[in-house]
Design a protein around this nucleic acid. Structure first.
Lengths: 225, 225
DNA sequence: TAGATTGTTAATCGATTAACAATC
DNA sequence: TAGATTGTTAATCGATTAACAATC
């Protein structure tokens, strides 16, 4: 089920419609806009009880948008911390409200004395040594992980031990949360880029490119056996 | 088929194995490492001809890694440009080699006179006015889109007209490439974050949080049908 | 040769789509 | 009331898993 991937997009679309003052929309119209079947939309929305639509009328844009906001946890006043206040971390801090609307960013953590104690876009930067205690005592919900890859697993262990509930992972590695039920959502830049590159290579008809085999690749290794 | 999402991960895993000097691996072992069934791995690899494995032996790590590199278009010397040399754009320029290994970043484009003519991590910044001509005459393969949302569609149109083959879209909107067969890969930060938030909200058992309904939400609108 | 493991065909599972009675 | 459109059940489709003959 890719419902979880469609939900944020539904929310975005309903926000757009609300801004355009569209009062209501049918599954058919919405399907045309979002390039989905009307069936799928009705199936998706029916997962959340019968409060979504009105037979013969459609979906009230305002109402559904608000429902989605709740379903997506945007009105729960969840809290977040960011670990790794480097270039990427600073970009995410600066855009936090737009990216994580409804969340509260409590602080950033780093190991570099040059940034510890400072403030980035109004967000205080603490010593990463204090991370565990902070998360534990503040019951922080989500951690944004923008540390170098080599530090990712260590920081993850610390977060999981402190009781974090979700990790938004920007590092290039697969972090392990062991036995805990901490949720992990990855943004693997490289994986995303290569998925695009794969499509290019597959459809490439340029002579000497793509369709040409990359030379012999004998799977029999040189090391014997 | 989510093969396209698994391929970059296969590649990453085989790179790790190669670095650890593991000479070969069976689908069973690999499945244990990657948390996939051996069946799925064999099914996936069989898509690309019979050059991958050796019955009774397994997969040669070096050989498969090289095959995957080719399949993912990493040895095609593809070229890229970046549009929108703001904070995020600069981060991507700085990490370009790690993120888009095998690609060549030819230039960045912006509309801000303060950055045009300068150079970021060795990458020249040009006036966005020149974008179309540049892409057309250099046969640029991929564009990285890190402009503000309001400029995204306009830049996309320009790129598509100039014959770009793929767009890596970091803007918050759904860009349209019209009738062209330009590939689009999105990194929607907010969508990713909300997918994580959704999991949190769904599993939240804190009193007054998550499981509690968000108050009555009468779908019947006030504006009278 | 015997053991291991592949590539591939068949079976299963889950997600999407179609159809339609219920209802505004 | 008649037309529109929902929520939901059944049918279809595609992807994952299991099984196994082929092969190193």
């Amino acid at each position: 089920m890719n419902l979880i991937r469609r939900l944020p997009r539904y929310f975005r679309t309903f926000c757009d419609l609300a801004e355009k003052n569209v009062p209501r929309i049918s599954s058919r119209q919405l399907g045309r806009i979002m390039d989905l079947t009307a069936s799928q939309i009705r199936q998706d929305f029916s997962q959340f009880g019968e409060l979504f639509g009105l037979p013969g009328y459609g979906y009230s844009v305002q109402s559904v948008r608000n429902q989605l906001r709740t379903i997506l946890g945007m009105d729960q006043n969840y809290s977040a911390v960011l670990i790794g206040a480097g270039k990427l971390g600073q970009v995410l801090i600066g855009n936090f409200t737009a990216v994580a609307d409804g969340y509260h960013l409590c602080g950033a953590f780093d190991s570099d004395p040059a940034v510890i104690g400072r403030s980035i876009s109004g967000c205080p930067v603490y010593d990463v040594q204090e991370l565990g205690t902070f998360v534990e005592s503040n019951h922080t919900d989500i951690a944004i992980l923008t540390v170098p890859s080599h530090a990712a697993q260590e920081v993850t262990d610390c977060l999981v031990n402190a009781g974090i509930r979700g990790i938004w992972n920007f590092t290039n590695i697969e972090i392990s949360t062991g036995e805990s039920d901490t949720a992990v959502e990855n943004i693997h830049f490289s994986d995303s880029f290569l998925a695009l590159s794969f499509v290019l290579a597959r459809t490439d008809k340029t002579p000497g490119r793509g369709t040409e085999p990359a030379g012999p690749a004998d799977p029999r290794p040189a090391d014997g056996l």
